[in-house]
Design a protein around this nucleic acid. Structure first.
Lengths: 131, 131
DNA sequence: ATTAACAATGATAATCACTATTATGATAGC
DNA sequence: GCTATCATAATAGTGATTATCATTGTTAAT
């Protein structure tokens, strides 16, 4: 466990957002100024393979990382690109159900909702923009 | 509507797979041999913006395209990368439900299951590979 | 038919996110 | 102290996608 890896985990743990590798890099630089971007990518990949973080591939923006590896659902704002956690209850039967019906081996599932977040809706009202 | 755009749509309509831009490019070249790769990308982007095709961003493999723009759910094989359509019934209430509960404006949702497809499972048996 | 206006193309350069390479520095066992 | 090991920093490289731009259709008016 290098100080770089530690710093990356600390950044991930202390944010409730779902940051990109680039953003994580910027934050970690405050702790470890001469860290390389490749180190961030490498450790994020290793952490993902070890199941300590999970990758989120969004529609439109790049790859994001999540310290919370338990299955949960996401909302993606098409305006600002932010990802929010939803507290929608997890469908615990769908993987087995589809596996039984189709024969596929199902090991994960993810639900993504999309639209406009509260902040971006407020912004519309203030500016009078019509969408 | 150029003959290039037409050919791209034809390829998309005639395949049940969820092809990458590169694959579409290879197919369209049979019709329009000297089409440029950039033209394929440009038209795919335009078609997506016009809502005539939809982009699928997978975990691991690149962007895929789907001529079917009606909401439906996908299965992503983590071995071969193929995407299959599921005939799981669509949850028609979730968008409104979450919108009501959270205030978010919800305009779309997508469910992705992941695991190992039938072909890749067969392959395991034949080779005796242990996963 | 000719021209003008304009949209779409093909070729290629550039960009972006990410990965491989390589030489270096820290750490631990001998 | 010396060497093996491992993660690192720096940088070059890769692959997918996008921007640029001169050229080529395409259409409409003359």
């Amino acid at each position: 466990m290098s100080k770089q890896k530690e710093a990356i985990i600390r950044v991930l743990r202390e944010t409730s957002s779902h940051p990109s590798a680039e953003w994580i890099y910027e934050q970690v630089r405050k702790d470890v100024p001469n860290i390389g971007l490749a180190t961030v990518y490498r450790n994020l990949r290793l952490l993902n393979e070890a199941g300590e973080v999970s990758e989120i591939r969004t529609s439109g923006d790049g790859t994001r990382f999540d310290y919370n590896t338990r299955t949960h659902y996401h909302f993606h704002c098409d305006r600002c690109g932010r990802i929010l956690d939803l507290d929608e209850p997890i469908d615990t039967t769908i993987e087995a159900r589809i596996a039984r019906r189709t024969g596929l081996r199902v090991t994960r599932h993810h639900l993504e909702l999309g639209g406009v977040c509260l902040d971006c809706q407020k912004l519309e009202t203030h500016t009078g923009a019509c969408v």
